[in-house]
Every structure is written in structure tokens, then in C-alpha cells.
Design a protein around this nucleic acid. Structure first.
Lengths: 251, 251
DNA sequence: CGTGGATTTGAATCACCTCAAAGGTCGTGG
DNA sequence: CCACGACCTTTGAGGTGATTCAAATCCACG
């Protein structure tokens, strides 16, 4: 399968300055002027269809990407061919930075649905990061956030049981939708059960069983990929998380 | 327990310029002049004793640290009090950057043995990163490396069985000693079996059993914390890793 | 409306965990 | 220098949560 970044877009070009996501995305905290300079180096490609790759592990690292619409998963391949999903990426999130010093992408990014991205060529971004302190800080913040996410996943994979993992996962997605202005209790999971099971280090069957158990206990309602969180408090307790009214720390 | 960073050192002050680790550490790729500017903001404290904390989860994030001698572990606390070790840190490695944007340390760092560190105040480092492009790049490289490490750990915790985990762990340590000019087959593990088990998401007893099994199969020899890797090839195969003669990619 | 993939459910198995107890090791103080 | 205690490591026996294997059901899409 061929990667499909940077195919020119025919329609109107959106810009960071007018993008509704700019308060969540890389331009966050950039001045009007700096944002324009960032906008200048960004390439907008045609949409990526479900199942297509944005980039592939081992390919030369040329660009990082910000998700504009849609969703992707990133995964690493073990030498035995098994894959481990390391993250799901919703609108405004930046992908690829972990390859920054590697020369090649250390993971593969695949679209979970039709997805549009902003491509940011590494060389120019790297150059701009030296000129715009706010951009540099934002890049480092993004990487710090990624590290903390991954370390929380290590904790999840190492110490939590199946129900705690699923609850943590649902709440993570819930919080991310909420930050984007969507409902924190009614949403559509863009990934399959298989993807969820892979991400959480469980068998698909276990995910399915936990979902049905959660429904029996009236913590959630599901209908295919649509999901309603009916008892947030219990889910938070199950996940072993503070309810984070004041967003004390991430997980 | 009180954290003990930045207590003034009485003896001779070492410098980056003369430090044998500067080719592995943060000054990597800095010019002589830039290295001096970095050196100027670094504080060297008195040694930290085994079991003491360098910093604690939740404390205000003020500095990152480079390990000069000794070793530390870093771990995060779940809300139920369980801890998950996220990394072991040997000489020349940088700790704390993951808190860059968090305001507070997202994890705790504890000395595994008597350890000396170089303290780098965040504010000054952050300032210097805007002036020295090479330093900025090195910081981002460090963070990228950390992300890839953590994602490899996710794969390990999610997909590998006990023997594969232990083999991967031993080889990781082996490679890190080798890069520092030590033997890749004869070394001393600075951490306890309990720490290893926690890091690898297994019970202590399982670690112990795998170690004895590896000895019976003549893959390793152990005597307390001393360890000899007698069959690197088999260990690499077990770990599901390429032998990496040409260091094709990390794990 | 049929087909292939995704999801759910059930039954049996297993890798690792827990519990229990017997060595070891190390630092401390007499 | 040796005895003591605390902690770490090893070994054994039994239990269990999640997996695997198998099969039914659902669903999206051409």
C-alpha cells in the first residue's frame, strides 16, 4: 500500500488562521504573525481513505502531520510481525514527532476513516523552530505530552486488569472529545474492537465481554461503534482516576 | 523523604568540556563555545545516596538532570498507590524532560545506588534552547528517543511473554553499557529483582524463575546482581530482536 | 440480498499470579 | 569478627483472569 501524503488539494485552501482547531493544534500560543509563517510551510493534501497509510514504519522521515478531520491509528511492528497500536489520533493532534531524530518513521500511521491532514515538512519546521521560540516550546510540549501518555499506557498495560483498562480507555476518548467541544458522554468510537483490544493489550473477546458486562451494570450503552457513557462516576472509579473536575493531571 | 538536588558540592567542579560523557550526554554535537554556555548553567550537587529521591511526582518542575555516575529509576504512581517503573537511567542519560510542559514532575526519580547528577535549571535551559539550535535539536532528539523507548515498552508489555520480556530487558541494558564503553556481556544490574519485575509487568517470582531457567539453558550466568550473558544470539532471538550489528533501529 | 468481515458468546486451557516458606545477602552493632 | 535482623531472592504448590479455539450472530456494503 502506498502512502498518500501531500497530493495537492484542488479545492479551497484552509489556513491555520481560520482553522477552528488552532487553539488546540500546533499554532497554539503563536502570535498572528508567527502563525502565518507556520501556515506558509504547511501542505494540505487530499483526504486519506479509511485503511490507507499516511506513512509507514521505516520510510524516510520527512514530515509531521496534524489531523484536521477524521482519525488515525499509529502502530509499531515487532520483528515477528505483530503490531502494537501506540495511539489513536483525533483532530488537532500531531503525529510523527517521535521520529524526529530517527531519520525514519518509527511507526506506521493508518486512517481509521476518511481523514484530512496538514503536512508539515520536517526541514522547514525544524528551521522555523529555531526562529520562533513559541513554536519550539509548543513542539516540546507536544512531545512531553506524548511521553506522559505513553508512560500512563505502560502503567495501564502493566498493572490494570481488563475492566480498568477499558474504563480508562473510554474516559480518555471522552475527555479528548470534550476538549474539542463534543459531548463527553455520547460519541462514536472511530476504531474497531480489534484495534481497541490491540491498544489495550487484551484479546478482542475480552473487550467484547467487558463491554457487555459494562452494559449489564449500566455503565455504558453501545450500539456498534456508537457509545454512551451513562455512569461517568463509576467509570472514573473503575479506571482508578480522579474525576478531574479541575483537570489535575492527564491519563 | 526530602529531595536533595542542588546541595552545593564542596570538591572540585567537573565541567562538560572535560566530562568523559559529553559525547553521549546533552552537550553532544554542541560546539566548544556552546558547550561552555551550557556548562555555565549546570549545577553539580553532592551525591545522592541509594534510596533517596532526586525529585518527586507532583513537585514543581524546576530542573532536568543528567546522570553523571550511578543509576536511578523513575516511576509513576497510580491513584491506588501502585507504582510503575517507567525507566532506569544510567550515566549520561537525561531525566525529567517529560515534565517539560506540565509544571510539575509527572514521575518520581529515586537513586538505585550512590549517584551524582548534573542539575540543569529549566528556565535557563529553556532560554538557552532558543539561542542554541544545536541544543534545541539535542533536546528534541532526547525526547524522541524517550518516546520510542516507551512505545517499545508498550509493545513489550502488551505482546511479549515473560521470557521475551526478560531477554529484551537484559539486551537493552547490555547495549546501553556497551555504548558507554563497558562490556556488553559482563555487568552488574544496579536494580533489584523487584524493580525489574515491576518494570517488566511481572511478579518477582516470575523474574526469578526466568533467570534460573535462562541459567539452566546456559543463556546467562548470575550471581546476585552480577550477570554474564553467555549466549547473546539466543537472547536476541528470544527477545524478538535483530542482532543489530549495524544498529538499524532501537529497542 | 448475499457475502466477508466484525462482533459476540461459550467452553476449555494456560501463563502467570498469589500465597507460603526456605535460603541468601548485606549492613549494623555488640 | 561474628551475630543479628531486615530485606531480597529463590523455590514450590495451587488458583485465576484472560486467552485460545470454536461457532453463532450481526452488520456494512457492493
Amino acid at each position: 500500500m502506498k502512502t498518500t501524503a501531500a497530493t495537492p488539494l484542488r479545492g479551497a485552501q484552509p489556513h491555520c488562521q481560520t482553522c477552528s482547531l488552532n487553539a488546540l493544534c500546533l499554532p497554539l500560543s503563536l502570535s498572528e504573525n508567527d502563525m502565518e509563517r507556520l501556515d506558509d510551510i504547511i501542505r494540505r493534501g487530499r483526504p486519506i481513505q479509511k485503511g490507507q497509510l499516511l506513512f509507514q514504519q521505516g520510510e524516510e522521515f520527512q514530515s509531521v502531520f496534524a489531523v484536521r478531520t477524521g482519525a488515525l491509528k499509529t502502530y509499531t511492528l515487532a520483528s515477528n510481525g505483530e503490531e502494537q497500536i501506540t495511539g489513536f489520533h483525533l483532530a488537532s493532534e500531531l503525529i510523527g514527532l517521535s521520529g524526529y531524530d530517527a531519520g525514519a518513521y518509527p511507526l506506521t500511521a493508518k486512517a481509521l476513516e476518511t481523514t484530512t491532514v496538514c503536512e508539515i515538512p520536517l526541514q522547514q519546521l525544524d528551521h522555523l523552530a529555531d526562529e520562533l521560540p513559541d513554536l519550539r516550546k509548543q513542539l516540546m510540549r507536544t512531545m512531553g505530552t506524548e511521553i506522559r501518555h505513553d508512560q500512563n499506557m505502560m502503567l495501564l498495560l502493566s498493572k490494570k486488569n481488563a475492566e480498568e483498562r477499558v474504563a480508562s480507555f473510554l474516559l480518555d476518548i471522552s475527555q479528548r472529545y470534550q476538549r474539542r467541544g463534543f459531548s463527553s458522554t455520547h460519541f462514536r468510537l472511530p476504531m474497531s474492537r480489534v484495534d481497541i483490544s490491540n491498544y489495550l493489550g487484551l484479546a478482542v473477546e475480552t473487550i467484547s465481554r467487558v463491554f457487555t458486562r459494562f452494559q449489564k451494570n449500566e455503565l455504558i450503552e453501545t450500539q456498534g461503534k456508537e457509545i454512551i457513557l451513562t455512569d461517568l462516576d463509576s467509570l472514573y472509579e473503575l479506571a482508578g482516576l480522579a474525576r478531574a473536575h479541575d483537570k489535575c493531571f492527564s491519563e
